[in-house]
Design a binder for these strands. Structure first.
Lengths: 146, 146
DNA sequence: ACGTTGTTTTGAGTGACTCAAAACAACTGG
DNA sequence: CCAGTTGTTTTGAGTCACTCAAAACAACGT
């Protein structure tokens, strides 16, 4: 949908980042915008629908370039391949289902962002706090209860 | 040192977890106790000093068994191999240096533990909050300033 | 000391990437 | 609007950090 409704938007964002606008890049951006929290394989599968013949390597290249450019954000939950999402800029957090690995966004915790300050930074100059919550998603709760 | 000063302690803890007490397990426990936040390779290197011929695979087995038993804790910072530490039970957090990858422990953030509650859990039943801070360690700050 | 059962070793295999060279396509400038 | 330049994509190989499985071995209970 969004590929049809706002193609120029995406192109402009890519160009604005100093990158050339190419079909794989548009397709990747679109795939991730539609279904956040996808790993490289999943992105590749979705891109291949619109652009058959696209190599997995290209998807890695594109994901890397768009992430470096700040158009995508990469998260790496423990024991998962890297996941990509298009909500960037805010430093929101994530909940991961320990049973089915579903991921959802979570807005900042107690108080307002920057919501986290370590009580003791061990001499580090801290610039980012990354929070991952682990739990059971609604579906898995239901299945386990049933 | 701790291998000399408290060997029975370690043995008792292993036995108490329902595991057999073996030389590789004692050596791994000791290596991690002395120098927390080691990856499997680093543990292997240290174990090999005391117990030459120990296979890397054994180290993986031992780390897995001790982690499952709750005697070690595994952390997996983004873009790092898994690291092991012996401080378990409290849910403390970590700071990772973005330049040299040094890791330090951080006590709980604002307020007291449980210090984190998502403002919106997206329907998940959350049981753990994991926090990773990213920044520059003291040494790297100094080197960059110099 | 013996047997059972859990460990360690040996060796192979996998997933998720990264690296590099060659083929190709976007943008620039003429 | 066509060529050149430069950045992209493809192809293909290689790596890291593990996991899986079978066989050799050692810890603990009796």
């Amino acid at each position: 949908m969004s590929a049809e409704t706002r193609p120029d938007d995406a192109a402009a964002r890519i160009r604005g980042a100093g990158l050339k606008v190419t079909a794989p890049r548009l397709a990747v951006l679109d795939a991730v915008a539609d279904h956040g929290h996808l790993d490289a394989d999943a992105v590749h599968a979705r891109v291949a629908e619109a652009l058959p013949g696209t190599s997995l390597q290209s998807v890695y290249n594109v994901l890397g370039a768009l992430t470096d450019a700040g158009l995508l954000r990469r998260i790496e939950p423990a024991a998962s391949p890297a996941l990509y999402e298009s909500r960037t800029g805010d430093n929101h957090h994530h909940v991961v289902c320990t049973r089915c690995r579903a991921v959802a966004d979570v807005n900042c915790v107690v108080g307002e962002p920057p919501c986290l300050a370590p009580s003791d930074g061990a001499g580090f100059a801290i610039h980012t706090a990354e929070v991952t919550f682990w739990g059971l998603c609604a579906d898995c709760q239901r299945e386990l209860a049933g």
